[in-house]
């Protein structure tokens, strides 16, 4: 069963993601591998990637195996962004998390790692705790959608693995994130 939905304001803030998706659905290479894991994620240089306006883009919603790697599928979007010093899920990202929750509930063999991150501001250990809470907030919503807790692991990196090495709000907003990594 496939359907097409218009994901309204979704990912408005996510100008740059680990994959930059053009409107034609093609994937810009060079922005880091999708399943790169802890080693590669977070230290990719995103400076050269064109910020693609994703608001209003049509995403496919389907939950078959492999949907997570289909750039035209909503499940290809795997980064949840947060406000400063907040672990509250904004509505558009809560919606994205729910799609992943349905996928995980339907594919009980699928496992994810939630990597929590913050921007560089404030103290490092507090940021570890803050990033952990961001990942926990995503996990709670996934559990609510029927995901088994055994499918989810969490690691908090705090400010230690920025996605963007800049020192301004443009970099910071890309660093305040939880990455959903399918294992």
């Amino acid at each position: 069963m496939k359907k097409i939905v218009l994901v309204g304001m979704l990912l408005l803030l996510a100008a740059c993601t680990d994959q930059a998706v053009r409107d034609d659905g093609a994937v810009d290479a060079g922005a880091g591998s999708e399943t790169g894991g802890a080693q590669a994620s977070g230290i990719n240089d995103t400076a050269g990637i064109e910020g693609t306006a994703l608001a209003g883009k049509n995403y496919r919603v389907s939950y078959e195996i492999g949907a997570i790697n289909d750039p035209g599928n909503i499940l290809s979007q795997k980064i949840i962004y947060f406000d400063f010093d907040s672990s509250e899920l904004q509505p558009e990202y809560a919606e994205l998390v729910k799609y992943h929750g349905k996928y995980l509930a339907l594919n009980s063999a699928a496992k994810i790692r939630l990597e929590g991150h913050t921007d560089e501001r404030g103290s490092r250990e507090y940021n570890i705790a803050l990033a952990d809470r961001r990942a926990q907030a995503v996990k709670r919503l996934l559990l609510f959608e029927g995901v088994n807790s055994k499918q989810i692991s969490i690691i908090s990196y705090g400010e230690e693995k920025p996605a963007d090495f800049g020192h301004d709000e443009q970099a910071w907003r890309l660093n305040r994130r939880v990455e959903i990594i399918y294992e």
Binding site: E125, I128, A129, D132, Q136, S156
Partner: peptide, 9 residues
Amino acid sequence: LTLSKDGNP
């Protein structure tokens, strides 16, 4: 030390 093993830091 800080642990979150019980769900929260």
